[in-house]
């Protein structure tokens, strides 16, 4: 059951997108942290923003939140121009920073009430909101704990609570699950789904690809550029028929040998399984012969060769190594 906490979405703008950027760019000196970003995030979705460290994810979010002035391009957030309608954007969006940024010497409740007050939520309304959000996020137990004394998972939940205090229609979460244990991550995601069902759009960065798989749509950043965007399944499909698995005892030798093979884009090791990515779709049975031959030649015979279901991780690693072709 989704409570009123989550119903922050009621509005009737003509603009359908939660985020819509065109050519959005940011330079730091000579570094193009973000360049020519064209990104569209539909309303009511969970959008996963992926990319290796330094790809420009945080920089993008900061520009969208109005914390950083773009050096080029334009963007609309929640239907408002980021340069002209900052005040409207602030009311419509919530932001949870990558680094913990609440007041460590205030209790959870004091932090929450402070941010509520800043958004004009006071008195009975604040009490009601506190009850709602704290019970939804199951953090009533830490109401009187100082925020600085909380452990990782609790800190992130409290930060999320504070970002939600004004029922934003769009929520930016910069690595909300970094440093959070698997069960807490699970709960966090359950909650994000609840929020989404309540009509809130979510813009989430993560380095966990299992989380990325759960997003309605993902965007992949590399070196400040968006190199792929779409639903996870669609993106995965790009690797269909390009991925072949091989079981082998001596993984290191086999990997070295197979990487040298023409047509092979990358080989990754998963225990005794090698995931061999080809540059173009191949017939795995036809490829198997060559793989066996090369591995045998390197003194690391393959036990078995078989077709593989592509995952986002394969795509991610392929992109990050600059091998996969951007569409």
């Amino acid at each position: 059951m989704v409570g009123t906490v989550l119903s922050g979405a009621a509005d009737g703008g003509a603009d359908d997108a939660a985020v819509d950027t065109s050519g959005l760019s940011r330079r730091f000196g000579s570094l193009d942290a973000v360049s020519g970003l064209d990104l569209r995030v539909e309303r009511g979705q969970i959008f996963g923003f992926l990319g290796p460290n330094g790809a420009g994810k945080t920089t993008t979010i900061k520009m969208l939140c109005g914390l950083l002035e773009p050096t080029g391009g334009s963007a609309r957030v929640a239907g408002c121009d980021i340069r002209r309608d900052r005040a409207a954007i602030k009311r419509a969006t919530g932001y949870m920073a990558q680094a913990f940024s609440l007041y460590p010497d205030l209790t959870s409740e004091e932090n929450f009430r402070f941010f509520g007050g800043v958004y004009g939520i006071q008195g009975r309304e604040a009490d009601r909101r506190l009850e709602e959000v704290f019970s939804q996020l199951d953090i009533e137990g830490i109401r009187r704990t100082e925020a600085g004394a909380l452990s990782g998972g609790w800190k992130q939940r409290l930060a999320l609570a504070c970002a939600l205090v004004h029922s934003p229609r769009l929520l930016f979460l910069d690595e909300p699950t970094a440093g959070v244990d698997p069960s807490q991550r699970q709960r966090m995601w359950d909650f994000l789904y609840e929020l989404c069902e309540g009509g809130t759009s979510l813009f989430v960065t993560t380095h966990y690809l299992d989380e990325a798989e759960r997003c309605h749509s993902v965007g992949f950043m590399l070196g400040g550029r968006l190199i792929a965007q779409g639903p996870p399944a669609t993106l995965r499909e790009r690797l269909r028929h390009r991925l072949v698995g091989a079981e082998v005892q001596r993984v290191v030798e086999a990997t070295r040998a197979l990487r040298g093979l023409t047509g092979v884009s990358d080989v990754t090791i998963h225990g005794h399984e090698l995931r061999v990515l080809f540059e173009a779709p191949v017939d795995w049975e036809a490829a198997a012969g060559r793989l066996h031959e090369v591995a045998e030649g390197a003194g690391a015979p393959l036990r078995r060769v078989y077709p593989l279901e592509p995952t986002l991780e394969d795509l991610f690693i392929g992109y990050a190594r600059g091998h996969a072709t951007a569409a």
Binding site: G66, G94, Y95, V118, C162
Partner: peptide, 13 residues
Amino acid sequence: ERGTMDQLAVTPL
């Protein structure tokens, strides 16, 4: 220093 300035800056203040 605490990073709370950004959190303040995204509020309507």
